[in-house]
Amino acid sequence: MSHRNVVTTGPWLLAAIVGLSGCTNASLEGGSAAAHPLPGQNGAISAAPLNQTAADLLPAEVRSKGTLLVGTDPTFPPYEFYAEDNKTVTGWDADFARALGETLGLEVKMIPATFDTILPGVGSQKYDVGISGFNVTAERKKNADFATYMNSGSGLAVKQGNPKNLALDAMKLCGTKIGGEKGTSQGIETLPAFSKQCMDAGRPPIDIQLFPSQHEANLALTSGRVDGVLSGDIGMAYASKLSGGSFELAPGTGWDPTAVGIAMPKGSPLTKAVVAAVEALVASDTYTSINAKYGIPDSVKVSADQVDAGATR
């Protein structure tokens, strides 16, 4: 699946490339990160105005605290990754979270976590919200509310040249080793469903390999321990551009577009305020400028009337 600073080249970039693809500096063209300009490297973001209507919906304890604690997994550029100080979480989701705070009159604090621990942390109120590219699935909606801010499909990364002729099609993956990140919808729903299709057809199942972070999943691909990695299509497309020729996207990219949203505890008193703020944001210049900064295509945008699809109102 998520994501304050203007992105610059430097140590963060090399770390991001490793996190994306498992490459070393030497694997890049000319051995230099500068050979691979990044979306988000430059670009101003319009400040989001305070939306008093949304701010008035905040629970009293959040308003008095003045801070929104956001759980995120900073291993998935361009949505969330570390800045050059190796401490600050930056990227699309981080910029959107900051804009959410501006809309609600709150300071935002991004708290790094492994992806599979964020939703439990939201449920236990360790975090106020989770912003880390969460697909809004029926299973997740049993335990969380969501405010949708994007639609995105899945993409399958494979070794350059696609030597095994893989595609994002269950019958093309039978008997192969496919990686993913723990806790993702691709890892816990899509790949098991594909594997079942294989077995139902009398073919060998998919050997599903799930890793604690997207960094480790991509590293497994570049080192040959898996045949492919299934994740969000925009993130994997971004990874392929930075991989120094290590991997590419297989046919079928953009499979099954799904709502992506901010996670909140089920039935949370915070939900109405966040939904109202996101409705204002997706209709604003701020949303447009964040997408432009990171090269996010118009096809993933949502309108205000799509925001509360995952919410309990």
Results as ranks from 00 to 15, higher is better:
residue 34 A to L: 13
residue 37 P to W: 02
residue 63 R to W: 06
residue 51 N to S: 13
residue 20 L to W: 04
residue 73 D to E: 14
residue 74 P to H: 07
residue 56 D to S: 14
residue 9 T to N: 04
residue 36 H to M: 10
residue 38 L to Y: 05
residue 75 T to C: 01
residue 8 T to E: 00
residue 17 I to S: 05
residue 71 G to A: 08
residue 48 A to N: 10
residue 45 I to N: 11
residue 7 V to Q: 01
residue 70 V to Q: 08
residue 24 T to H: 09
residue 50 L to D: 09
residue 22 G to L: 08
residue 62 V to W: 12
residue 22 G to R: 05
residue 56 D to C: 04
residue 41 Q to F: 02
residue 48 A to P: 06
residue 46 S to A: 15
residue 67 T to H: 03
residue 49 P to M: 15
residue 17 I to V: 15
residue 13 L to S: 01
residue 34 A to Q: 05
residue 14 L to I: 13
residue 17 I to C: 06
residue 20 L to A: 09
residue 18 V to P: 01
residue 7 V to N: 02
residue 8 T to D: 00
residue 65 K to D: 13
residue 61 E to F: 15
residue 12 W to Q: 13
residue 33 A to M: 02
residue 58 L to F: 14
residue 39 P to K: 07
residue 24 T to N: 08
residue 44 A to G: 07
residue 53 T to W: 04
residue 53 T to S: 15
residue 63 R to Q: 14
residue 27 S to D: 14
residue 73 D to I: 06
residue 66 G to N: 05
residue 51 N to V: 12
residue 30 G to N: 12
residue 19 G to Y: 02
residue 8 T to C: 00
residue 57 L to V: 04
residue 59 P to F: 07
residue 36 H to A: 11
residue 57 L to A: 11
residue 9 T to A: 03
residue 30 G to C: 08
residue 10 G to Y: 00
residue 52 Q to K: 09
residue 61 E to N: 15
residue 47 A to V: 14
residue 23 C to W: 06
residue 62 V to L: 15
residue 8 T to K: 00
residue 27 S to Q: 09
residue 68 L to H: 04
residue 45 I to S: 09
residue 62 V to N: 10
residue 16 A to N: 04
residue 10 G to F: 01
residue 19 G to C: 03
residue 67 T to W: 03
residue 23 C to S: 14
residue 16 A to P: 02
residue 38 L to K: 05
residue 50 L to H: 13
residue 32 S to T: 15
residue 35 A to F: 02
residue 52 Q to H: 07
residue 68 L to K: 06
residue 31 G to M: 06
residue 15 A to G: 02
residue 58 L to K: 13
residue 57 L to Q: 12
residue 27 S to V: 03
residue 37 P to T: 07
residue 74 P to F: 06
residue 46 S to D: 15
residue 34 A to D: 12
residue 11 P to H: 00
residue 70 V to G: 06
residue 75 T to A: 01
residue 39 P to V: 07
residue 21 S to V: 02
residue 18 V to T: 10
residue 76 F to N: 03
residue 51 N to G: 12
residue 65 K to I: 08
